[in-house]
Amino acid sequence: MSGGLTRFGALYDAAVTRFGGRARPGAARDALWLTVVERSPVSDDVVSLRFGGTALPPWQPGCHVDLHLPSGLRRQYSLCGDPSDDTYRIAVRAVGAGSREVQALRVGDRVQVRGPRNAFPFAGLGPVLFVAGGIGITPILPMVHEAARRGLDWRLVHRGRSALLDELPPGDVDVRPHRGGTLLDGAAPDGAVYCCGPAAMLDQVRSEFSSRWLHFERFSPPPVSGSPFTVELRRSGVSLAVPADRSALDVIRDFRPSVAYSCRQGFCGTCEVGGVRICVDRPTGDRLVLEDL
């Protein structure tokens, strides 16, 4: 790493600490019961929801909350409102059972919420390039507003179906409805890149990545890769073989479909068992023992 990037890295670490702190996977606040205070359609398949309650914990751009839905499903959504508001706002695209259940919520409904937590912290340093794909604009939107508020040199590239783009502050915004072309053109050599979108977009950004600081958030878990092992469910008295291309969570769910999970990326803590995040953690040896399953 060059001296310039080393200095940038030190500045980034200090800025993140001041601005909101780094995320600690699995470290969730106590659950809150919040009420839907506003529901509005953003586009044909995206709905904006605001949740209110007393003494909401503060949050920073990049934060998300965990929604514990009445059906028992748990889903994470990025906060896309203003951190100074007295509500939490999310925008949800209909892509599965969980998102459809969230979109079906109405004003006055109460939902259990955990968080906010930040697995995608914005340091508040420029120059910065934001790259968003579709609904990936949700964590990026408050970052852009913060960058504009601070007078940073910023640029946004958005690819795919648009939602919330009319809420962006005036600035250098490149909207691309279709795929094609490089995504990192115009990025400052000594700047940072923040990206949120589908796997194909992240793969492209990472392939174009050179010496810039890249920070990203995934829509879906990355492919599993590792050594095979055996997971022993001590309470159930069974041992299950976990192949190299599957997680312990995947195999355990085949045996016990009711096991709780959500993000499948290791940061929400929903599937944690005895300090092990079974969606991503693998043992150093060939056996993992879970006492509580």
Rank of each mutant, 00 (worst) to 15 (best):
R114Y: 01
G96A: 05
A119F: 00
G62A: 08
G134V: 07
D85Q: 12
V95Q: 12
Q76T: 15
S99C: 04
L125I: 14
L73W: 01
A94R: 15
P127R: 13
S48P: 06
Y77V: 08
A97N: 03
S84V: 12
P83C: 05
V131F: 14
G98T: 02
F120R: 05
V92W: 15
P70Y: 14
A123L: 07
P83I: 02
V113H: 08
R89A: 14
A55L: 05
R89M: 13
R74T: 15
G133R: 02
G133L: 03
F120V: 01
A94I: 01
L67G: 03
F122G: 13
L73R: 15
R110S: 10
P127D: 13
V102D: 06
R50F: 09
G62S: 08
G134T: 06
G53Y: 03
S71W: 03
T54H: 09
G115S: 09
A104F: 06
A132R: 08
V65L: 15
G72R: 07
W59E: 06
P121N: 07
G98S: 13
R93V: 10
G81Y: 02
A104P: 06
V65N: 01
L69K: 06
S84R: 15
Y88W: 12
P116R: 04
Q112I: 00
A123P: 03
V131Q: 13
G81N: 02
G96C: 02
L67N: 03
G133A: 08
A132Q: 05
L105W: 12
R100T: 09
G98M: 07
G53S: 04
Y77G: 08
H68S: 05
G62C: 10
G133C: 04
R89V: 08
H68N: 02
S84L: 13
N118V: 08
V107S: 09
A119M: 14
G96Q: 02
P61T: 05
G53C: 02
Q60L: 00
R89L: 13
D85R: 13
V102M: 08
P58S: 14
D66F: 00
H64W: 09
Q76Y: 13
G134N: 05
G108S: 10
D109N: 14
